[in-house]
Design a protein around this nucleic acid. Structure first.
Length: 218
DNA sequence: AACTCGGGGCA
DNA sequence: TGCCCAGAGTT
């Protein structure tokens, strides 16, 4: 198992590899972060970032999203996929924010997950990035990376992985950790053909060492 | 647990 | 061309 110090070392190395990873989800306010995160489902942020500048210039508040027909909103986000669900959710969510949360994005998980289209992962991103609250969205990349490195056991559930990382990550790294893990997992520690040969974390990585051993024996 | 939504990226 | 993808909701 990876120690807390080793884990922090890994996070620092990931930051050196992808220094601007966390910039992709920096937004001027929690509401824009919430919308951008919701749009990110099943597509990359690079794709989302192509529509958000125009989107956020046009819609600045929950009220703004309610002043157009759903078809118009669909057209504004069509290129990212899953646009029917997402448009519907954004309008329903805007309505709820106005009626139940005084137009503000709530800062508790219990409240966030009651919003349509917002599940645990989206809620955790908003909590950590917008409010600095320790919460980590565990997707396939985060799960794979933490298990390969040896931070978690292979049989751990998603919730167990989340608990372990939450426990071992220092407060000052909360707004970055998720994005560093995502980038590291997506572009380096890939699901297929991970680049172990050039990996700076090879010395501490459980799976990496195993793969190298196998490679040298054949 | 296994679907569905969905256009774009990439082999 | 066909497969996959920073998820959530429904059955």
């Amino acid at each position: 198992m990876l120690t807390k110090a080793q884990w922090q070392g890994c996070l620092e190395v990931m930051e050196e590899m992808f220094p601007d990873a966390h910039c992709e989800l920096i937004h001027s306010n929690p509401f824009e972060l919430l919308i951008a995160t919701l749009l990110s489902a099943q597509c990359t942020d690079a794709l989302v970032n192509r529509v958000t500048p125009a989107l956020f210039a046009k819609y600045r508040s929950p009220q703004d999203y309610l002043q157009v027909d759903v078809e118009e909103l669909q057209n504004d986000i069509r290129s990212i996929g899953l646009y029917r669900n997402k448009s519907k959710n954004i309008q329903a969510l805007s309505q709820m924010l106005i009626e139940q949360f005084a137009g503000e994005v709530p800062n508790s998980r219990e409240a966030l997950v009651t919003l349509p289209g917002v599940g645990r992962k989206t809620a955790n991103v908003v909590l950590s990035v917008a409010f600095g609250i320790p919460a980590l969205a565990v997707d396939t990349h985060v799960e794979r990376v933490s298990k390969r490195l040896g931070l978690c056991k292979w049989k751990d559930s998603v919730l167990q992985v989340e608990e372990t990382i939450t426990k071992k990550t220092p407060m000052n790294l909360w707004n970055k950790t998720h994005h560093q893990l995502i980038f590291f997992g997506r572009y380096h520690c890939k699901a297929q053909n991970p680049n172990c040969l050039s990996c700076p974390l090879l010395e501490v990585c459980r799976e990496g060492k195993k793969r190298m051993k196998k490679l040298s024996s054949t």
